[in-house]
Design a binder for these strands. Structure first.
Lengths: 206, 206
DNA sequence: GTCTATACGCAGATAGAC
DNA sequence: GTCTATCTGCGTATAGAC
């Protein structure tokens, strides 16, 4: 479980602290000093465990993406007997939103990266996620074709969906100012999940 | 018109180039050298026109927000005789999306800022936009109460909406990788606008 | 594995010539 | 208004002691 607060080794502790720093301040806004200070060691010691700052960043991302993939895979596979159409989508959607709510650092990490023009990741995040995207598009094509979901353009629908979901958890600071209350309070998160489900049902349930 | 490519003074040229740099690479990822080089002057000359890097950033933001406010104000006010319910919302929505499509730098600028933990802006962007947000909430309350729009939680609706819209234009680079084509091509933008309108109509039209 | 010391460059900002 | 020169601090990364 990559996303808990405890570290079993210095290497793990570095990754944990680096994830926090990178997600809050981005790649350029984070220094090896920041990471080292959070761990309680010196800058040079961080570079004993990783060859460079970029290597730390890439390791953080690798861990995060692997963890995310596992969760979604499990959620998609776990359907019961009457798991189809809106029922299935609603279940996966709810799992996904809850996971994002539990892992806001991941969301902010991805956002920083997808916003960046030149990347420090070594590969293109969009391209890397394309197979996932295609899987989702195929799913919607099938369900809409069979009349189990109302017809919309699947690609556009997914883009709207991930925007509506990720936004909330990436822009927590902004929303705090906008709403005048804590968007990550438990009841606020529950309300958000409910709203996302309602909105998608209104648009998709046949 | 603040968002065109021509600069009538060095100060304007600095703001223009700074907006490009900040929106692509964020505050920390942009140096005064980058800005100066884009303008064709030296670092010290930039600091003749602005007292500090933060001052440049704030001036860029001030200009962008003022321009945005003007456009929305005009769009909201410009209704014809049968301008109410979904018709009105659809019109304002379309204007807003088109403006974002024309000003992706603004979108990325706001995104960087709302993502940042500690800001270089000097004020809280969320708080500054709260009056706008409240105005929109009141509008939805009125329309939904009168039965001219389907009932949803207005706050949640607006959060979903701005997420679905802003995402597309802020994550252009990411989407290029994800879709395997240019999301800012004219027909792609038209398709996006159409999809947003369809999706909102499906959820909101009574 | 962690440390200090050090190399080296680039950052933001200021002083002063032209 | 723009420049060069300079100050000062922090950045990444490496060498080598313990």
């Amino acid at each position: 479980m990559a996303y808990d607060g405890e570290a079993s080794s210095t290497r793990e502790a570095i990754l944990l602290e680096a994830r926090r720093c990178f997600s809050d301040h981005g790649y350029e806004g984070t220094s090896l000093n920041d990471i080292a200070a959070g761990v309680g060691i010196r800058r040079a010691s961080v570079l004993h465990h990783f060859p460079s700052k970029e290597a730390v960043y890439q390791a953080v991302f690798e861990q995060a993406l692997a963890d995310w993939g596992d969760r979604i895979d499990r959620a998609v596979a776990h359907g019961g007997p009457d798991d189809e159409g809106w029922t299935h989508l609603d279940r996966v959607l709810t799992v996904a939103v809850r996971w994002f709510a539990d892992n806001p650092e991941f969301v902010r990490l991805v956002r920083h990266e997808s916003l960046a023009a030149g990347t420090h990741l070594g590969f293109d995040l969009g391209e890397a996620l394309r197979p996932w995207f295609q899987r989702a598009v195929n799913y919607f094509d099938r369900e809409m074709g069979a009349g189990r979901l109302r017809k919309h353009d699947p690609e556009q629908l997914i883009i709207s969906g991930y925007g509506a979901i990720l936004n909330y958890f990436s822009d927590v600071h902004f929303l705090h100012g906008l709403l005048g209350r804590d968007p990550m309070a438990e009841e606020a998160i529950e309300a958000r999940i409910q709203a996302i489900r309602d909105f998608f049902r209104a648009a998709l349930e046949p």
